[in-house]
Amino acid sequence: MTDLVGRLLRTPQGAIGCTLILLLAVACVAGPWIAPKDPEAIDFLGRFRPIGAENWLGADQLGRDVFSRLLVGARSTVPMALAATLLGTVVGAVVGTTSAHLGGRLDEAIMRTIDAVMAVPGLLLALLLVGTLGNGSGNAVIAIAVAFAPGMARVTRSVALAVRNQEYVKAAVARGEGGAWIVFREMLPNVMAPVVIEATIRVAFAVMLFATLSFLGLGAQPPSPEWGLMVAEARQYVHQAPWVLIAPSLAIALTAIAFNLVGDGLRDALNPRHER
């Protein structure tokens, strides 16, 4: 494990990505304490104050400090995306592994159904679910998790099938090992790696999806400093103060880039043969 982290940090993508994620983690944990100003403090004299010493990333339509809102908003954005991905991955991994394990007609039926569900675009599925469950961050997390689960199930199943055909698994079957040993000790450790890579990259999409739901008014609700919501609120003042819009936009993109980089780095670190 430490070996893996070392190899990850030696890849350029991994090093940059990990640094960015570390900064995000600091913002998520300590955001309210390290924020230079109160993110909710309204200052009518400072409306649309440009970037400068007073407000590092400028001030918004209510004179609130954009930088402080970004720092505090990290915890309304990133942990939600992580939670959604984790939930979707666990559900997907269980379904995928079970399907691969069952095999035969059942496997085919499950996979056909999953393919069919995947014909509904992820965002649409999330929209329908949030529309049903009601607006809010928690429901958005559930919606994204449900939207991700079929894809993760497919990935897990294909990896599990590949691993099941490895000769060490056949050796275990021929030896008469129990089902639990074969699944948990022979297969799972080898299935984990590709699934973790896929999940890491999906966190990037979860960040984007969650921000999109908030942008559309279905995720986090005002006055939360959630980044997607910040973009939505800033749109009507874009003439006066473009920085209010640009700052959270870049925060979202940077977060997505960070997780993409780490996923890519993990792929290289776990698969040294794939050098290009």
Partner: peptide, 18 residues
Amino acid sequence: RRAVQIVFQHPDSSLNPR
């Protein structure tokens, strides 16, 4: 299963890498 054992073709895939 004890009495009948098997050795496979590919040395790279016949041992669990973990």
